[in-house]
Design a protein around this nucleic acid. Structure first.
Length: 508
RNA sequence: GACCCGGUAGCUCAGCUGGCAGAGCAACUGACUUUUAAUCAGUAGGUCCUGGGUUCGAUUCCCAGCCGGGUCACCA
């Protein structure tokens, strides 16, 4: 006999007892006629139409679900089952089921899946309930789920959970158990799915084509990040998991697919945090003939569309404040914002003065940061945390943006924006650099940084240059961190709460 | 990577200054045919994260490690 804990042993014993009595504990199928909530709604409709039987029963239903509540009264049992729609109470009565069927209920546990059929009725306390005429075990659960006791506050109707399942580590490692006992977690991931569907619908309506580009790439690019590296054996070739989709999508613009988007898993070999998971979901789109101004307008429409379609409110909880989203979003030049914060025109400051300011503020990890990086660090320190209301931060220094087009009015800057909401960066976009000669120079600048030890500088992609040489029309492009977008819309504060299976160290 | 907090029954947690390991819920046995945190009576259940050390004796103190959470750093 396996060395099982007492609770697991009891379940195995019940499994054996079921088989002894000729019951298959792992059934093959069941055919419900209604969801839990449909069963309740059906009864209420019958009741309103005065269509109940003399016994007070509505239409008979077949429902199936996981047992989440069990109150044994001796010769009757009240249980709750839960399915995708919600929960409904089942009433098992000995003289309605017969002795054999009723006695088998003794081998049922919380967490088992069952199907049942019967008429619906309203109990003395008013709850619409299925009066079981028959029931069947669909799956025996051999491991107890960590259900809390659920109480409904009689005054407020609020759901109070006692002794619930709260250990973060176990909830992430055993997401199946977390989902099984937490309807609100299931709901959060349904919302995530709806948000992604809404994003797709929005872009489809705008005439974009959804495409798929390589996850395994011979050369990575499109962002500054360390990649995961692997080997393809047959080709005997080093491959990288993509860190961004950008360069492949822009190749498609060159090819004449002039509005494309991709929703992808990207991978960055970096640390984990509340807002970083090494594997994360990115949405990128590229639109020919548009610039970053056009894309700011598109992003505004997109955010409102998703809020209206999915959340049903334009007020969300972000960065610890209620944020009411209204367009147009505020625009703030990165240099202007920093100049205001410093009380000095940044353009007038020497590199040494910027560095001195950064050191004064104890900005960490300055290293050999150049002017652009200093400006960016100072902005991040002084301005970013206050960007709670939706704000486009625009016109970043050139050296920070090797794939962005030079600003039409200021060659030191690029046409770029990042959208901040709740203090978090969620969108990043440019007027895309399409001059292949300039692009090669930018790549070479990156190569120099790389040679100087910056392992996140972007490698030179000759094939991408070749594509640009054929001619890429003026193009606006946007990248969005989907996980962070979902966090923002749903008020979650950890990225792990919007990713079903976040990365954790392996057990043992 | 640094710092702080945590790891005890299936779950949620208590365990004082080192002295036989505790509760609630879940489980098990019994009672109960409209209950809903059902109720009542009883029973069982432990690698106190791991490995060392100190001690007559360690869940407790010390050291090292593992795993998680948080903060910071990194990640434009």
């Amino acid at each position: 006999m396996e060395d099982l804990s007492q609770v697991l042993r009891h379940r195995r014993e019940k499994l054996a007892a079921l088989r002894e009595r000729g019951v298959e504990p792992f059934a093959y199928n069941f055919d419900p006629t209604a969801s839990s909530l449909d069963a309740i709604a059906g009864f209420e409709a019958d009741e309103a139409a005065e269509g109940l039987s003399e016994a007070g029963h509505g239409t008979s239903v077949r429902v199936a679900g996981r047992i989440v509540g069990w109150r044994d009264m001796g010769k009757s049992v009240f249980a709750h089952i839960e399915d995708r729609a919600g929960r409904v109470q089942i009433y098992f009565k000995k003289n309605a089921l017969g002795d054999d069927s009723f006695d088998l209920l003794g081998l049922v546990d919380l967490g088992d899946w069952i199907g049942t059929e019967g008429g619906t009725f309203r109990t003395r306390t008013g709850e619409v309930t299925v009066h079981a005429q028959s029931w069947t075990l669909l799956t025996k659960s051999l491991r107890p789920l960590p259900f809390g006791k659920v109480e409904t506050d009689p005054d407020t109707g609020e759901r109070i959970v006692h002794s619930g399942f709260t250990d973060q580590e176990t909830r992430y490692r055993q997401r199946y158990a977390d989902l099984a006992v937490h309807p609100e977690v299931r709901e959060a991931f349904r919302t995530r799915s709806k948000i992604i569907t809404a994003l797709r619908r929005f872009l489809d309506n705008e005439g974009f084509l959804e495409v798929e580009t390589p996850v395994l790439q011979p050369l990575y690019g499109g962002a500054s990040a360390k990649p995961f590296v692997t080997t393809h054996h047959a080709l005997d070739q080093t491959m990288y998991l993509r860190i961004a989709d950008e360069l492949y999508l822009k190749r498609l613009i060159v090819g004449g697919l002039d509005r494309v988007y991709e929703i992808s898993k990207d991978f960055r070999n970096e640390g984990l945090s509340r807002v970083h998971n090494p594997e994360f979901t990115m949405l990128e789109w590229y639109q020919a003939f548009s610039d970053y101004e056009d894309q700011m307008a598109l992003v505004e429409r997109m955010v409102l569309f998703v809020l209206d379609e999915v959340i049903g409110s334009r007020t969300i909880r972000a960065g610890g404040e209620d944020v009411t989203v209204s367009t147009p979003f505020r625009r703030l030049g990165l240099i202007d914002g920093l100049s205001q914060a410093l009380g000095t025109d940044v353009h007038e400051m020497t590199d040494a003065a910027l560095r001195a300011k950064a050191e004064e503020l104890k900005v960490p990890d300055l290293g050999g940061a150049g002017r652009g990086k200093l400006v960016d660090k100072l902005f991040g320190e002084l301005v970013e945390p206050g960007l709670i209301q939706p704000t486009f931060v625009i016109d970043h220094p050139k050296e920070l943006s090797p794939l962005a087009k030079p600003h039409r009015n200021d060659s030191r800057l690029t046409e770029r924006f990042e959208l901040y909401i709740g203090g978090a960066e969620i969108f990043n976009a440019f007027s895309e650099l399409n001059d292949p000669i300039d692009q090669r120079q930018r790549f070479e600048g990156q190569a120099a940084l790389r040679a100087a030890g910056d392992d996140e500088a972007q490698p030179i992609d000759d094939d991408y240059i070749r594509a640009l040489e054929y001619g890429m029309p003026p193009t606006g492009g946007v990248g969005m961190g989907v996980d962070r977008f979902v966090m923002m819309l749903t008020g979650q504060t950890s990225i792990r709460d919007v990713i079903l299976f976040p990365i954790l160290r392996t057990e043992e």
